[in-house]
């Protein structure tokens, strides 16, 4: 019997050792990894698989002429060509501008409407719970369905709005809500505001509940009219809540896609094209994924900018109230 016979005691020992080996032993002792790295390994593996690798891959692909229809083009490095093309493309900047416009108009409208809704509901003494629940109804529908619903409401032939306007005798023409460029943008903003005003409503209502009663009474005694109490006491207390809502909603609106896609599909003639409908179309319809990824990376800055902006505002509003940072 030779030394390397399978039943030789030494080999049997080795096998047993491997079989019983603790994975920690393999990583720490055999690979000489420091303990902190070993402990972080599960998190690192999961994050890499879910976030890091896709992110790096998409970043890489934005430097290639990658087309979904030609997988081998993933290896065709073209440097910053996609980025140069994006920042010199009028269509891209038009979509960018439109997204900013939608953001500005929708967010401010939602804030004002949400604030008024919250103020009114906070004054209601009976049935406040029911009203609060009803206020949140629009949030319960998928944006896709909201898109379909408003597509019907604003339809120029069978739509609810035209029907109502004509029956009331306001107009006898069929107003092309979704066909005219400006009206289409208006219709989209309308739908967006309808779905999401309650986000502001509910957050501001929470803010209203959190306001201490004493300063408001002090303001009354100090001679404030109801409007002045609101302006000088209530509103400063609400600002942190408003900025939180703004930060959440700016991320939401900056990635707006579904409602627009359903209602106008970016049309007519790209008049309602937003960043992500443009990017989606470029990536999946035109199959130019490399270019779409490049535009995506530029667009991300918009979202990051607004988030940082509103968080800065939030911090300073909290500091105003002496709430710390």
């Amino acid at each position: 019997m030779g030394l390397h016979h399978p039943t030789s005691p030494i080999i049997r020992l080795k096998c047993m050792e491997l079989f019983h080996a603790d994975p920690r032993d393999i990583l720490m002792k055999r690979l000489k990894l420091p303990p902190w790295l070993v402990l972080l390994m599960p998190a690192i593996i999961i994050l890499s698989a879910v976030v890091l690798i896709p992110l790096l891959l998409s970043l890489y692909s934005s430097f290639t002429s990658y087309r979904l229809t030609r997988p081998d083009s993933l290896f065709n490095w073209i440097g910053t060509f996609n980025y140069e093309k994006a920042v010199t493309d009028a269509k891209f900047w038009a979509a960018f501008g439109r997204t900013v416009l939608l953001l500005a108009v929708a967010l401010n409208l939602e804030m004002l409407l949400g604030l008024s809704l919250a103020l009114m509901i906070s004054k209601v003494t009976r049935g406040q719970r029911a009203l609060r629940t009803m206020m949140m109804f629009p949030m319960m529908f998928s944006p896709i369905l909201v898109g379909f619903q408003f597509k019907f409401i604003f339809n120029d032939n069978v739509g609810l709005v035209n029907n109502a306007l004509q029956s009331l005798g306001v107009t006898d023409t069929a107003i092309p809500w979704l066909v005219d460029g400006k009206l289409a943008m208006f219709s989209i903003i309308f739908a967006e505001v309808w779905t999401s005003t309650s986000v502001f409503g509910i957050l501001i209502l929470a803010g209203l509940y959190a306001i201490p009663r004493d300063p408001l009474e002090a303001a009354k005694v100090d001679g404030c009219t109801p409007f002045q109490s609101f302006r000088f006491v209530t509103l400063p207390f609400l600002m942190p809540f408003i900025y939180i809502a703004m930060a959440i909603r700016s991320l939401d609106v900056a990635r707006a896609y579904d409602i627009v896609q359903i209602m106008t599909n970016g049309g007519p003639a790209r008049r309602t094209e937003l960043l992500w409908t443009l990017i989606g179309r470029t990536g999946y319809v035109d199959a130019r994924m490399g270019y779409a990824n490049a535009m995506g990376y530029v667009s991300i800055f918009l979202a990051i900018f607004f988030t940082i902006y509103f968080f800065k505002k939030l911090q300073s509003a909290r500091k105003e109230l002496g709430m710390g940072v």
Binding site: D214, P215, E217, A218, K220, V221, D222, G223, F237, E320
Partner: peptide, 18 residues
């Protein structure tokens, strides 16, 4: 209250924190 020419000190101070 504003037309009564009174002023009030509250238990919880009721200062305007901002």
């Amino acid at each position: 209250p504003r037309e009564r020419n009174i002023s009030m000190v509250f238990q919880n101070y009721a200062l305007y924190p901002h």
